[in-house]
């Protein structure tokens, strides 16, 4: 059943994405074509080139926003509005309905990243940049260590983990806010938005507290005095601080996600 839910979640959104993806690829191709004549381009040609470049940029930004905006609107429409009368009477448990939304969001995130990867390659003329990146990865790694010390590697690793978790962190806040909004009888959407701001604030504050504690606990700051001696040592300390923050970054979203599931299952209040 989960697979079927994912299938229909994708079907509901893929057309919008295909339009934007097509726009991105086409404008990148046009730009590349124009740019390859750049020596022979008159003024008009140069203006056209800028216009197409701008369109490309706008579409790229739009596609990134789209992933999250569509994920949020799809969740709201499918689970909390009229469509919910169909969704919640399907013979599948609520946790599958919600998980399907999460997985679909990740699918479109990955799809967008892949399309953007290709598009940038076309746009810049370096079509094989991805392959080069992979080929050169160990060289790049050793250069980074030479420049910034071994501490850079765990930092980048953590950064990548955060990037992968970011959609989940964002969506778990959204789902939780919607689940609280669902409890209201007067204005579900309004309550959801309020809850979202609340949760966000609390998360920011908690984050600040965690990082401060991490910073003070590390060897960077003793007796409130900055004692770091060189950049490379700083980087190692930073990664241990972020490791601590990881607990917050992972546990809070998981808790919110579980709560959202519980509320939608036991306290469904469809209008």
């Amino acid at each position: 059943m989960l697979g079927k839910a994912i299938k229909y979640d994708i079907l509901a959104q893929y057309k919008s994405f295909c339009v934007v993806y097509a726009g991105i690829i086409i404008s990148s191709i046009f730009f590349r074509i124009l740019d390859s004549f750049s020596d022979n381009l008159g003024r008009v040609g140069k203006v056209m080139s800028s216009v197409i470049g701008s369109i490309f940029t706008i579409l790229v930004i739009a596609s990134i926003f789209m992933v999250f905006i569509l994920a949020v609107t799809r969740f709201y429409k499918n689970l909390m509005r009229d469509e919910g009368y169909l969704t919640h009477t399907l013979p599948m448990p609520t946790w599958q309905l919600i998980l399907s939304k999460l997985i679909t969001a990740y699918i479109f995130t990955i799809a967008t990243i892949i399309i953007l990867g290709f598009a940038f390659g076309i746009f810049s003329g370096e079509y094989l940049w991805l392959f080069e990146l992979i080929e050169q990865s160990s060289y790049i790694k050793s250069e980074m260590i030479a420049e910034a010390g071994p501490g850079i590697i765990p930092l980048i690793r953590i950064g990548l983990i955060y990037a992968v978790l970011a959609p989940f962190t964002f969506l778990s806040q959204v789902y939780f806010s919607f689940s609280i909004g669902n409890l209201s009888n007067k204005n579900k959407l309004g309550f959801s938005i309020l809850t979202y701001f609340g949760v966000n604030c609390v998360n920011q504050i908690l984050g600040f507290i965690f990082i401060s504690i991490g910073a003070f606990n590390s060897n960077l700051i003793t007796n409130s005095v900055y004692t770091a001696t060189d950049d490379k040592a700083v980087l190692s300390e930073l990664s241990s601080i972020f490791n601590g923050y990881m607990i917050l970054f992972l546990l809070v979203p998981i808790a919110l996600y579980i709560l959202a599931n519980y509320i939608f299952t036991k306290k469904l209040n469809l209008e």
Partner: peptide, 16 residues
Amino acid sequence: VNTKKIVSYLPERTYL
């Protein structure tokens, strides 16, 4: 989930 398999519900609104 088990009852939803055997209950067919027609709401008053358009849910499609």
